[in-house]
Simulated scan of single mutants.
Amino acid sequence: MDTKSLIIEKATILFQQKGYKSVGLTEILKACNVTKGALYHHFPNGKEQLLIACLQVLNEVIMTDIESIFRRHLSTKEALLSIIDKLIRDLETEGTITGYTFSSIVSEMATVSEPVRHACSALYENIQQIYSAKLVTDGLSNESASAIALLMTASIEGAMMLCLTQQSSDPLKTIAKLLPKLLKDI
């Protein structure tokens, strides 16, 4: 793995686990075993530029994963349950959902940094577009699909945050029971 990729990978994990403001450059450098010069070589504008790179990589990883799941399932309902089951398994086996959640970064930085807000917004929009496209395939109008995709995104993101704060998979299990009822007639 090249140095830039290593820095992004380690920083992403640290940002997700501790939040952007709680992670200092020294901690990132130590986790990567690189010098400050190496970090600034790849990210001349510093920590915020690194965060945006982390969000872009997260976007690619999450989109690839969600698209793969949605391609394997015929209906939105089946794909949704598969995603939630994956999140529950990750939480119960690893104790966290670091690969998927970035809500803590949004809550810390969206009002402070316009570039970070845009990167986070793009990620949510991409998730919603995947959900919405599948819902249209299931027979919903564009308007209905868009509204339900927003509800699905908000429900899953909120459930992930509740799972992390409660240290329990119960919130995801609850939405796994309730969201499919919303999709029952599709």
Rank of each mutant, 00 (worst) to 15 (best):
E125L: 01
S104L: 05
R89C: 03
I130Q: 01
R89P: 02
E114R: 12
A159T: 02
A110N: 07
L87V: 00
M152C: 14
I83V: 15
A176F: 07
S113F: 05
A119K: 04
D90E: 15
Q166R: 15
G158K: 04
A149S: 06
V136G: 12
L182C: 01
A145P: 14
E67P: 03
I156E: 09
T174G: 04
Q128S: 04
P180M: 00
G139C: 06
S141D: 05
F70G: 01
L182S: 04
S144L: 03
D65R: 13
S168R: 09
S144T: 09
E92V: 02
P180L: 00
A159H: 06
L81D: 11
T93C: 06
N59Y: 13
S168E: 10
D90R: 10
I66S: 01
V106A: 06
G158C: 09
R89F: 12
K134I: 00
Q167S: 13
R89S: 13
I88C: 08
E143N: 15
T137H: 14
K184I: 03
S121T: 14
I105R: 00
E78K: 12
D65W: 03
A122P: 02
E157F: 04
S155A: 14
C120S: 11
L123D: 08
L178D: 10
T64D: 15
I127V: 15
A176C: 03
E67I: 03
A145N: 10
K77I: 00
T76M: 04
M109A: 03
S113Y: 09
E78P: 11
V61E: 15
N126C: 07
T96P: 03
H118E: 13
T93D: 11
S146A: 15
I105N: 02
Y100V: 00
A145K: 03
T64W: 05
D170C: 07
K77S: 11
D170F: 15
H73W: 01
A159G: 08
N142S: 13
A176V: 01
L150A: 06
Q166Y: 13
H73L: 00
L150D: 05
I88Q: 10
K77P: 05
L135G: 11
L164C: 08
L179N: 11
S82P: 07
N59L: 04
G158H: 08
Q129H: 07
G139W: 10
I69P: 04
E67G: 02
A79Y: 01
Q167P: 07
C163L: 03
S168H: 09
S132K: 11
S168L: 09
A79L: 02
L140Q: 12
E108Y: 04
A110G: 08
S113Q: 11
E143F: 11
I97Q: 11
M160S: 09
I84F: 07
I127G: 06
L87I: 00
I175M: 05
T137Y: 13
Q167W: 09
S103I: 12
N142M: 08
K86L: 14
C163Q: 07
C120L: 05
S107N: 11
L182Q: 13
R71L: 06
Q166A: 11
T137G: 12
P180V: 00
I88E: 13
T174N: 11
S107H: 05
T64Q: 15
T76Y: 04
R72F: 02
P171K: 09
L91V: 02
F70C: 01
L178Y: 14
L140V: 08
K184T: 07
K134L: 00
A119R: 03
V106Q: 10
T111L: 10
